[in-house]
């Protein structure tokens, strides 16, 4: 207690332990805290006071309550220093790539072009058109950095609250398990969108600042206007967000299995790395279409002419399947879980 008020000493019965003297029965002495900064009696009392309001203000709509909780989640996520640092790193990488390419444009472009089929060409294009930095940065970051960022937030979602003990207070509020989980997932998707957008915007700004802008040459060799290029960047952002949202579902499922957030985060990252390794083993090519990371780069379909809607549609279906399966696993686990932390 911050203050111990000298005047607050109350004559008190001897604790009922070692034989109380006559007349000092338990619960006999009513006591009053005599002021100070301690717990204070509020005139009217809270229960009574609040009860007055209850009939006057009708209970808020369920939808509104959902939005309020989502807003609270988002506020928590986007005010948390750690998450802001993650977003800052994501924003800094396109800047780094852009600056390096500006300084060493020639050798890097030539070197990159040596690796056919590995996206090297897309880097070579950056020097000619700043808009391509967005695609280049996303194709690079979507492999590991972005998944790690998503894992940090989605893996922490339930396990972090459980570890801190705040989960029990949310549930006794009562947030409702299904509602809380849905809101947590919605918030994770929101973070995915923010993370992808941060990369895109940062790359766009630095790309346009350091390199010439203009019409864009697609992978198919067709040229589209700058404005349409921006539109296609928007599509890329949405597609990559959907891919990350699927990963967020996996991370959320892992998050319901443990009370150690770091465990869920690490498990998600390890899962991503393992699948990345599997997806370069040619003997496992039959497995590749079922691996999530395999589809993250599918946004290159936006850069074809015509846009490879079939492939990207298939990618979105894969994302939806992952989201449905792992989302329902998370739900089954979380709604039946004993909260003992």
């Amino acid at each position: 207690m911050s203050t111990v008020d000298g005047t607050g000493i109350v004559t008190e019965a001897e604790p009922a332990g070692k034989g109380a003297t006559a007349g000092s029965g338990p619960a006999a002495v009513p006591e009053r805290s005599s002021g100070g900064a301690g717990l204070r009696a509020v005139p009217g009392g809270l229960s009574a006071g609040a009860r007055e309001q209850a009939p006057a203000s009708r209970p808020p709509g369920a939808l509104r309550a959902w939005w309020r909780l989502l807003g609270s989640e988002a506020g928590l996520t986007f005010r948390r220093p750690r998450n802001l640092a993650v977003l800052a790193v994501l924003a800094a990488i396109p800047v780094l790539i852009g600056v390096v390419m500006r300084l060493f444009a020639e050798p890097l472009a030539a070197g990159a072009a040596d690796g056919p089929g590995n996206g090297g060409a897309i880097f070579a294009q950056v020097a000619g058109n700043g808009l391509f930095l967005t695609f280049a940065a996303l194709s690079l970051l979507v492999q590991l950095m972005l998944p790690v960022a998503v894992a940090v937030v989605a893996g922490d979602a339930v396990a972090g609250e459980a570890g801190a003990g705040t989960l029990r207070y949310l549930l006794t509020a009562p947030a409702g398990r299904t509602r809380l989980l849905a809101v947590k997932y919605g918030n994770a998707v929101l973070f995915c969108l923010a993370a992808v957008s941060v990369i895109a915007v940062s790359a766009l700004v630095i790309g346009l600042a350091l390199f010439p802008a203009g019409p864009i040459t697609l992978l198919s060799g067709t040229t589209i206007s700058f404005a349409e290029g921006l539109l296609r960047i928007g599509l890329v952002v949405l597609y990559v967000t959907a891919g990350m949202a699927a990963l967020a579902a996996v991370a959320l499922a892992l998050s319901t299995l443990t009370e150690a957030a770091i465990g869920a985060i690490a498990a998600t990252v390890v899962a991503v790395i393992v699948t990345q390794v599997l997806s370069v083993v040619p003997q496992l090519s039959w497995l590749h279409p079922y691996l999530l990371p395999q589809w993250w780069n599918g946004f290159d379909g936006v850069l074809r002419d015509p846009v490879a809607t079939a492939e990207m549609g298939q990618g979105l279906l894969v994302f939806a399947a992952y989201t449905a399966i792992f989302g329902s696993i998370a739900w089954a686990r979380f709604t039946g879980k004993d909260i003992t932390s």
Partner: peptide
């Protein structure tokens, strides 16, 4: 405020 938001019966206006 965070815990209050978790309670669907709580009125945000109050």
């Amino acid at each position: 405020r965070r815990y209050d938001a978790a309670d669907p019966a709580a009125d945000p206006r109050t």
